[in-house]
């Protein structure tokens, strides 16, 4: 509503525009360029049409890593969102413990991603890691470097540890913005705690949860650093998520064409799924 008309403002936006151009638009165009060309080195390129796209879309390797990616993303969403909401509900809303809880919650978010990967890498080692050793002492045959199931377990546990806080913080922000009158009215109406959650807290958290789910979806679909440091995609290809596979093709095998086509498909999948998420979740809002 309060738009200020000031042409000078454009000058302040200009540096960002330049930055975005070099950061996003130019590389994206380069990728588009690679995706329709074939090269045998020496900077000689041939027109390849949509051949790379056909190859990517029909390749079983792509299907497998896409499948692993979807499994990973939906598993962590299914754990992190409810868990985040539960923790947010359990946090105190007033008093000195609020800041303590908030700091504790924010801590995992402050740790660099590769450090998180390295931490869990050591943490899970069966011989010396606290987690790995403990599990083995307790009688579990746990070894994430050898057994695919254990690798998945560690990978998901790491992500939940790292990112549930984000959902907690967003959900908490939604919760504290609910005026006291709502809780008072619900008490007077004789509502159960489940009803209070279902009809007051959840609807009021909906907006922030939408943002949380979108962010977690996009981030987890893009995830590279942590699994790459933790398992490097192994054992075998069992934890090779899309991004890891992409790097293998592009930088491992230097197949620029297929890698470019794959990253475009990858990008479109994220775009499409984010759009679907967003539309579904905001569908009932204006009515």
């Amino acid at each position: 509503m309060n738009k200020t008309v000031n042409q000078k403002a454009w000058f302040f936006v200009l540096p960002v525009l330049v930055l975005v151009a070099f950061n996003a638009i130019v590389p994206l165009m380069t990728v588009v360029n690679y995706s329709v060309q074939e090269t045998f080195g020496d900077n000689i390129f041939f027109w390849a049409g949509i051949a790379w796209f056909e190859e990517v879309l029909t390749s079983s390797r792509f299907h497998a890593s896409l499948g692993r990616q979807l499994t990973f993303t939906f598993t962590i969403l299914a754990i992190e969102v409810p868990l985040g909401v539960i923790i947010a509900l359990a946090m105190p809303r007033k008093g000195p413990w609020v800041s303590v809880c908030l700091v504790l919650m924010a801590m995992p978010l402050l740790i660099p991603w590769n450090v998180v990967g390295a931490m869990w890498n050591i943490f899970g080692l069966p011989e010396i890691g606290l987690l790995g050793k403990t599990l083995n002492v307790m009688g579990f045959d746990y070894n994430y470097t050898r057994q695919p199931g254990d690798a998945w377990f560690t990978l998901i546990l790491m992500d939940v540890w790292h990112w549930t806080s984000l959902v907690v913080l967003l959900a908490y922000a939604g919760l504290v913005s609910i005026p006291d009158a709502y809780y008072q009215a619900a008490k007077i109406d004789g509502a159960s705690s489940w009803s209070i959650f279902r009809y007051i807290q959840l609807p009021k958290m909906k907006r922030v949860l939408t943002i949380a789910i979108l962010l977690r979806f996009m981030d987890s679909f893009n995830i590279y650093t942590e699994p790459s440091v933790l398992t490097g995609g192994g054992p075998g290809n069992s934890t090779t998520l899309l991004s890891i596979d992409l790097v293998k093709i592009a930088l491992g095998q230097f197949d620029l064409g297929p890698a470019a086509a794959m990253s475009l498909v990858y990008f479109l999948v994220i775009l499409l799924m984010s759009w679907i998420f967003y539309t579904v979740m905001t569908r009932n809002e204006d009515q």
């Binding site: 005026p179 009158a181 709502y182 008072q184 009215a185 008490k187 007077i188 109406d189 004789g190 509502a191 009803s195 009809y199 007051i200 609807p203 009021k204």
Partner: peptide, 28 residues
């Protein structure tokens, strides 16, 4: 409050947004 059998209308309207008017009235 819930054991005193009172009703209260607050300064800022409190309704259950996701429910219909009927369900709101039926809620208590």
């Amino acid at each position: 409050p819930e054991q005193r059998h009172i009703a209260q209308v607050f300064q800022f309207p409190v309704v259950y947004d996701t429910m219909t008017v009927y369900d709101n009235l039926a809620f208590p």
